[in-house]
Design a protein around this nucleic acid. Sequence first.
DNA 1: TCGCATCGTTCGGATTCCGAAACCCAGGAG
DNA 2: CTCCTGGGTTTCGGAATCCGAACGATGCGA
Lengths: 262, 262
Amino acid sequence: MLPMEHESAEVVPFPGRSGDAERYNAPVAARIVIIEDEKDIVELVRYNLRKEGLEVLGFGRGREGLDYIRRNPVDLVLLDVLLPDLDGFEICRAVRADDRTRSLPVVFLTAKGAEIDRVVGLEIGADDYVVKPFSPRELVARVKAVLRRKLPAEAVREVAEGGEVRLDASTREVTVRGKLVDLSALEFRLLHYLVSHPRRIFSRDRLLDVVWGRDRFVTPRTVDVHIRRLRAKIEVDPDNPLYLQTVRGSGYRFLPQPDAAD
Amino acid sequence: MLPMEHESAEVVPFPGRSGDAERYNAPVAARIVIIEDEKDIVELVRYNLRKEGLEVLGFGRGREGLDYIRRNPVDLVLLDVLLPDLDGFEICRAVRADDRTRSLPVVFLTAKGAEIDRVVGLEIGADDYVVKPFSPRELVARVKAVLRRKLPAEAVREVAEGGEVRLDASTREVTVRGKLVDLSALEFRLLHYLVSHPRRIFSRDRLLDVVWGRDRFVTPRTVDVHIRRLRAKIEVDPDNPLYLQTVRGSGYRFLPQPDAAD
DNA sequence: TCGCATCGTTCGGATTCCGAAACCCAGGAG
DNA sequence: CTCCTGGGTTTCGGAATCCGAACGATGCGA
């Protein structure tokens, strides 16, 4: 459910438990959740972090944000201290109490003075804090610093490669047979996941789990559609897919193609 | 509202399910217990989960449900929070306290709100929760996700090998004497089962049980047909089968062939 | 606010897969 | 030699599954 904790075994028995899938790190540089009730601040943060290639998701209420964090892969949380329902401290405690989110980086947005002690003091277990009003630069700097500190622990391949297909998560660039291809965020995640587990078969349900997230509920058929769209973009002949193969009755898989000389 | 149908008092060890035969790439096939006093909800859940090939057993009272769980093999429990006698929290605690059921996945059906915090993470140790009113699709998705996370722990060995026949469950690739062979999902399961129990003889009925599933009603002769199809694909001379042998009056078996030098 | 891109759903049609039945063949018992 | 039993083979209809396309919803940026 999040980037850290146990190292994934090299040989994964099943596309299951062994953490790999759970923790599948979104091929964006990172996913940030901000829980903050002032819309303006959310927008400000979103705008600035997005410029850095970070995906930002905002929640106005503590409960909803906490729910999301628990059920989806997230790389960092920005927490306002004062919220209408659950306050930031409580959320942070809850995050720390749950195995699945224990090591999730938490950064507080705090108004001032006295709170700071509680935040930084081990009491809560926050990773950093930013004092409001903050400068965008400072925010970005701190967030990135925390990410640098935490993420590398897990050797996440930023670049996935298979045959002539190459995806770079940090820039979100995709190259197929040397050509740059334009993918949507979802398409990128889906392809990235498949490419980083070549030859392995994934059921639609599983793909929905790891690519869409645990609290999206869409028809398994949706996967078909996106596979189709991907084929249209990366296959030589979309009618006879080589990379993205259907395994009838089981799901889909990515099959690296030997570099064809032409 | 009582244990409906499925009185099969099958003798299976305990929490872990009989393990052996089940799931290769097969649909989940698991036993779900739901403890919930609203009959409509039970029906809704039953209907939807059954569509996914899951067995559902409903109880209207906490005590009865808990009793059942303790004495029978179950793969997942759905718990209503509010029940006439024991409430969901108590049941969950009891489940967690018992060695035999400690690792049994628990999913709560909860009416929004503050309950959620108690349910997830800390205190209780539930695996997931669904907020009422829930969409059938969400329910199904969550249940299956939890199952996927838990069950594979004792998955079938990925690779089965016998003589020159090699099957990899993760990629569903089959190699016979070095050549890739294309099998349908069912053929794969059948062959995989036979190969992973070399030399052992299985009756048609047994194979139907294990490969097709306990609740499929299929003529034993169907096995013949599939054995034949397999022979056509993997035998050197389908008329004189070496790998897939008939044992007259008993059934079939897989016989690994000594690597023939060529 | 409008427009564009992305995403999810649905439905008809094509394809593959599976199950059952019918028939054939081989071997053994009497 | 004939009957009888159990396995093998073929065929066919229906079911499951997947694909393609079109449509509608949503959200984001200009």
